[in-house]
């Protein structure tokens, strides 16, 4: 059914509307980032947040976990963190005369991996493998991770000394990468007036049962995609491969990621089909960390993606 005229932009109401609103009450002025994080979760992807300390990375993860009723665990990455500190390990129990597996912090529905670039590549890859496989193999035994399983990793873009930046192949495991940025003037004022965000996040009540989430994810994955929209995604991906400003273009996996993210975004907008608007909305979050600039060593900037969008006519 078509949305009524007044709802053309607003979309149909859905189960996560209240989550967006409630999260917005602890993380002021960051509606778009909250929606992106939710879309990432709905598309069964993982999220990388890259920003300075104190802009609300942890608050966002915490608020989402509480509102969605997910078990939450937080791993602070340090240079001496070992893979077993994440995945868990078996200990020998003398009374039982057998090994018992003590699950690590990764066995949670929402894992916040704080400052992931502080740990050694070996430790990083333990988490990244878990993210990809959604299971953990310790001492030859494979254990499934809980469902839903959502990782929010954070990185501090400055103070790179003594860190291990994630290689490109690992960055690709994150469906989206977002920045939070400083709040706007009004939002900052509201934040100062309200006191701490984190304490507010702790007081949030679950608005959804965790068991319902897989059904929502399935709904989002089933959103209708018409042929012209696939043409558009294909044209965008091809344009990144032609564009000399990028070292290399987007991979086919990145194209699939873009499609999944656009579907989740359309679902969040309350629509039952994906529009080019959705693709353009999620493109910066999906593509920036996957594109390296040919000049300099940085990843694609927001204006590069804006230029890309303007260079590709909608078929």
């Amino acid at each position: 059914m078509l949305p009524a005229h007044d709802h053309l932009l607003a979309g149909r109401p859905h189960a996560l509307d209240s989550v967006v609103t409630a999260a917005g009450q602890v993380l002021f002025g960051k509606q778009r980032e909250i929606r992106l994080a939710l879309a990432c979760l709905l598309a069964r992807g993982h999220l990388l947040i890259e920003d300075l300390p104190g802009v609300g990375k942890t608050t966002l993860a915490h608020a989402l976990a509480r509102l969605l009723g997910l078990q939450f665990s937080r791993i602070q990455f340090t240079s001496d963190l070992l893979p077993a500190d994440i995945t868990g390990l078996s200990v020998y129990e003398r009374e039982r005369g057998a090994f018992r597996f003590l699950p690590g912090p990764v066995f949670a529905q929402m894992v916040l991996a704080d400052e992931i670039n502080r740990a050694t590549p070996k430790t990083q890859s333990a988490l990244l493998e878990a993210m990809e496989e959604r299971q953990v193999t310790v001492e030859g035994e494979t254990r499934a991770l809980p469902e839903p399983f959502f990782v929010i990793a954070t990185q501090n873009p400055s103070h790179q000394i003594g860190t291990f930046p994630l290689p490109e192949s690992q960055l690709d495991r994150f469906l989206m990468r977002i920045e939070l940025g400083y709040p706007e003037r009004g939002a900052e004022r509201a934040l100062l007036a309200a006191g701490g965000q984190r304490s507010n996040a702790d007081r949030l009540d679950a608005l959804l049962a965790a068991e319902r989430l897989p059904a929502l994810q399935a709904e989002a994955a089933a959103i209708h995609v018409a042929a012209p929209l696939l043409d558009y995604i294909q044209a965008l991906v091809e344009a990144t491969r032609r564009e000399p400003a990028f070292q290399h273009g987007l991979s086919p996996r990145a194209g699939l990621a873009l499609l999944a993210a656009a579907r989740a975004w359309a679902w969040l907008a309350g629509r039952d089909m994906v529009l080019p608007d959705d693709v353009q909305d999620v493109l910066p979050a999906v593509a920036r960390h996957r594109l390296r600039l040919s000049q300099g060593t940085g990843m694609a900037r927001a204006e590069d993606i804006a230029g890309l969008i303007r260079a590709v006519p909608i078929p």
Partner: peptide, 10 residues
């Protein structure tokens, strides 16, 4: 512009 999606036009 040819790259402008429908909702943005709205």
């Amino acid at each position: 512009a040819p790259w402008e999606p429908p909702l943005q036009v709205v």
